[in-house]
Design a protein around this nucleic acid. Structure first.
Lengths: 354, 354
DNA sequence: TTGTAAGCGTTATCAG
DNA sequence: CTGATAACGCTTACAA
C-alpha cells in the first residue's frame, strides 16, 4: 500500500448513523444492487433471494435513503405545491386531495405558502426547484415574469390550479371562475335582483378573484344593469373582513337588493353582520357566496353559493403529475372540473330553478 | 490508457439537464468548492471572487441541487410534519406557523396527514425518515409502538405538539388540554350551570380529545355533579356532526343547561342547530367551544371558548427544531404555551369574571 | 483564500 | 438472475 492509502484513511468521514443498503446486502449475502432491485421491483429478484433480503431488512430496520436515491436516479418522489395560504379552507381541501393521491403512489408533498404575492411565489418556485421535485403545483395562471420563466424551463411537470381560462404553461386543472361568477350573477338577475353589490378579494396577484369580478361585471353589463363602483368592496379572506364590507354596503347603499360574495368567507361573515343588525335574509337582502363551504349549508338560512371541486382539484392535479412522471405519453393539458350553482335560502330562486 | 478507460467512457450516464456547480465554477474561473463556499457562506470567499461567482450564477441561472447537498452533507433542509388532517383549521394554522418560521430560515416543509390513525402515522413516520428530514413534527404524545420506536431512534430532533402532559420522546410544545377543559367546565359550574353535556371527538388515537374529556369528567366529579353517560356525545370534526350531536342532546336530554363542546366546530354547528330549532342561546341553553376559531367571535351571540395558541405551536415547534439543528446545546424539552378561557355571550359568565 | 481528492448511499450501465 | 464499477452533484477533510 502506498502513502495515498494512509491519506485516504485519514480522510475518511465520520461514520453515519442509519443502516444502509450494503448492511442489508451483507446480511442477505447478496450485492447492494440486488437489494436495490428488490426494493424497487421485487419481481426482478429470485424468490429465495427475496426472502433473505426481506428478512435482513426487517432485522436491521433498514429505511432506504431517498436522498441518495434521488441523486443517483435523478428523480425524487417529492411533489411541491405552492398555495396562497393553507388557512383558507379551499386550499386545505385541495392539499388534502393532493396528499391522498400522492401518498397512495409513494410520493411526498412539500408545501409552501406565497401569501398571495407573486414575488414570493417566484422565490418559492426557485426554492422548490432546488429540491428537484418530481412535479410542481401552483395556484392560478398568473405569475411573475421570473416565476413563469422558472416554470417554463423546469424539467418537472407543472400543474396550474383553480383557473383554466388561459393556455397553461404545462397543464392546468380547475374551472372557469369567470363563467361561475357570470352564471351566479345572471341567476340573481333572473331571480329579480337588479341592484347587486359585490364583495371580492383584492384582484392583485389573484387571477381567480379577478375572473370572478369580471364575471360579475359582464353579467351586470350584459343585462343592462348599472355598474356602480360604490357597490363593490374589497375584502381580505377573513369572516371579519366580510362583515366589515357588508356593513359598509348596508350603511352606504341602502338601495342594494343583493350582495354577491366572491368567497363564502365573505358571505358567512356578511350574513352574520346582517343578523347582528336585524337585516333579514333574504327578505331584506339577498346574499350569495362562492366555494360551497360546509358552513353555508348549516347557516340559517342556508346560503346560495357556487360549489367548486376543491378536493378534486388536488386529486386531479396529483393524478396528472403522476401520469406524466410515470410515462412520456401526453396527458390532457387543460382539465375543466366544472362548478355548480347551488340555490339555497339566502336568495330568491331564479325563474329557471323554480 | 488501458481498456478500463474505454469501459468508463461507455459507462458514462446520460447528461442531465440542470446547470451545476461546476458550470458556475468554470465560468467564474474558480473551483467547484469555492462556489460551494460562496453559496453556503459568502464571507469565506474574497470580494472579487464573490462578484465573479455571483455574475456566473446569475448568467446561467444556477439553482443548487439540494438533493446532492443533502447526500453529501448528511443533512437536508426539510422538516417533516405529520398532522391528523389539514382541513381542521387548527392544524392549518399550526402549519402556517411552521411554514413561516421555516422558510425564514431556509427550510422546506413536508406535510402528511394521518387521518387520526396511529398506524397510518407510523407508516408516515417511516416514509418521512426515508427523506432524512432535519426535524420531525408530530401531533400529540400518543403513538403506536412502532411509531414511537421510530421517533425514539431517529437522528433528527422531534417535536410532539398540542399536548404536554406526558414526558416527550424528545421535545413537546402545546398546553394542557386537561387543564383547559377542566377550567372551562369549572367556570361553567361557577356560572351556575349544573347539568352540563359534552360533545367531544372520538378519543381513539387522539390524546388531545381524551384529555379534554378527562378534564370535563374531573371538573364535574370534583364539584360533586352528576356524570351522565347520555349527556356525552362523540362527533367527528364537521359542523354537521356538531349539529347532529347537539340535536340528539336537545331531543333526549331536555334537562341539560349547558353543552361543553371540545371543539369550536361542534360549538358552531351545535349553535346553528339551536338557532334552527328556536332554542335561545344562552337563555335556553349555554354553549361553549374550544379553540377560539375566528367564527366564534362573529357568531350571534359570540361563543364562549378556549383560546389556544395554534399558530404559535407551529412557530415554536419550528424554532425549537431549528435551535437543535443549528447547535448541540440543549433547548427546552417541554414548552407550555398556555391557553385562555374567553367568556362571551353564549354562556352566563362565571362569578369570578363578573 | 483557494484547491485537490475522496466520499456521501444509491442506481445506471454493462457484463456474466 | 446477479454482480462490478462508475457516476450522480455536492461537501468534508486536508493541504497549500
Amino acid at each position: 500500500m502506498n502513502s495515498s492509502g494512509v491519506m485516504a484513511a485519514k480522510r475518511r468521514r465520520r461514520p453515519r448513523g442509519r443502516t444502509q443498503i450494503r448492511d442489508v446486502a451483507r446480511l442477505a449475502g447478496v450485492s447492494a444492487i440486488t437489494v436495490s432491485r428488490y426494493i424497487n421491483d421485487p419481481g426482478k429478484v429470485a424468490e429465495d433471494t427475496r426472502e433473505r433480503i426481506a428478512a435482513a431488512i426487517d432485522k436491521i430496520g433498514y429505511i432506504p435513503n431517498m436522498v441518495a436515491k434521488g441523486l443517483s436516479s435523478n428523480r425524487t418522489n417529492i411533489v411541491a405545491a405552492i398555495i396562497p395560504t393553507i388557512t383558507n379552507s379551499i386550499f386545505a381541501a385541495e392539499v388534502s386531495g393532493l396528499s391522498d393521491v400522492l401518498k397512495e403512489n409513494g410520493h411526498s408533498l412539500l408545501i409552501s405558502e406565497s401569501g398571495y404575492s407573486l414575488e414570493r411565489e417566484a422565490e418559492l418556485i426557485q426554492t422548490m426547484i432546488a429540491q428537484r421535485p418530481a412535479g410542481i403545483v401552483v395556484t392560478g395562471q398568473v405569475h411573475s415574469e421570473r416565476g413563469a420563466k422558472l416554470l417554463r424551463t423546469v424539467e418537472a411537470p407543472v400543474v396550474e390550479t383553480w383557473e383554466i381560462g388561459a393556455e397553461p404553461i404545462d397543464m392546468c386543472v380547475g374551472f372557469s371562475n369567470f363563467d361561475a361568477s357570470y352564471r351566479m350573477v345572471t341567476g340573481l338577475i333572473e331571480a329579480g335582483y337588479r341592484r347587486i353589490g359585490l364583495i371580492c378579494a383584492p384582484i392583485t396577484a389573484n387571477d381567480r378573484a379577478a375572473r370572478r369580478r369580471e364575471g360579475y361585471l359582464a353579467a351586470m353589463g350584459g343585462a343592462g344593469l348599472d355598474i356602480v363602483p360604490g357597490w363593490m368592496r374589497d375584502a381580505k379572506f377573513t369572516f371579519h373582513e366580510g362583515a366589515r364590507a357588508m356593513g359598509e354596503l348596508l350603511d352606504d347603499h341602502t338601495e342594494l337588493e343583493a350582495i354577491c360574495c366572491a368567497s363564502d368567507i365573505f358571505a358567512i361573515g356578511g350574513a352574520m353582520e346582517c343578523q347582528r343588525r336585524g337585516v333579514r335574509i333574504p327578505e331584506d337582502i339577498g346574499i350569495c357566496g362562492f366555494d360551497d363551504l360546509e358552513l353555508t349549508r348549516m347557516f340559517n338560512p342556508p346560503l346560495t353559493t357556487v360549489h367548486v371541486p376543491r378536493y378534486e382539484i388536488g386529486e386531479k392535479s396529483a393524478a396528472m403529475l403522476l401520469a406524466r412522471i410515470s410515462s412520456e405519453k401526453t396527458v390532457e393539458r387543460k382539465v375543466d372540473l366544472g362548478f355548480e350553482i347551488v340555490w339555497r335560502g339566502s336568495t330568491h330562486p331564479p325563474s329557471s330553478s323554480r
